[in-house]
Amino acid sequence: MSSQPHVTIHQPEVPRNLAALDPVFTVQGLDVFYGDYKAVRDVDLTIGRKEITAMIGPSGCGKSTVLRCFNRMNDLIPGARIDGKILYHDEDLYGDHVDPIEVRRRIGMVFQKPNPFPKSIYDNIAYGPRVNGHKRGDLDSVVERALTQAALWDEVKDKLKASALSLSGGQQQRLCIARAIAVQPEVILMDEPCSALDPIATTKIEDLMQELAKDYTIVIVTHNMQQAARVSDRTAFFTAEVDEAGVRHGRLVEFDETNRIFTNPADKRTEDYITGRFG
């Protein structure tokens, strides 16, 4: 690799005003534990409304761990817990009164491996609205709208009753995005959504993310720096560091506008990583 970062920098046609960050999540001094193991240590981060925030860093540095705090997905892992604070708007996401199920209705998630249910395309999209008590009547239009927003409608409109597993990997992932959209969340979390996909399918998902960012707040974990550079407005760079006691913890090194992270990073470790000298 050359020492210059050969990455394309994403230039939105109408640059968003990144200065005025309107926080959806405010992370303060976040530690995440799996049992006794502190996997992530002391993270401060702000996720802006209707922005795309990328989390990058070497494998095992805690990107997924932090992402899964935003919809309290880690609650499902026995022994997982956090210290510190995550505010969702002005509400403590881990407050006593907070119902994790309600949290996940507002904050959707897309996973690394496409995971459509072994049901029809229609039933996959309708699943969320149904379990959230949507009345039968206009379910068809909900399904159509979600598939359209996920840029999948034209490809599947004639086979809504077909099994979701008959779709290609890229289509399955867009189906999973549509499934998340169908419950009308405010935020969509994506954990390496393209890492199981080919380049063409990846491009489609990236274009889709740009489109979705008009309406949704998106947080994406990726190990692909070019992808972070192409799609995101802000980038958080994580790494794993060994502390005084010899234990590895994930740390947030730098968080800034994507533009700056890739052209003029403040931290030497960020620069090493994006220029390929490390990781």
Partner: peptide
């Protein structure tokens, strides 16, 4: 039944009962 299906269902705001009855059981 693959854990990924459960995760997908939980991520859509399903309770444990809903995940059991509407995703795991049919699968």
């Amino acid at each position: 039944v693959p854990g990924g299906l459960r995760e997908g269902a939980y991520a859509l705001g399903s309770s444990r009962m809903i995940v059991s009855l509407r995703v795991v059981f049919p699968a």
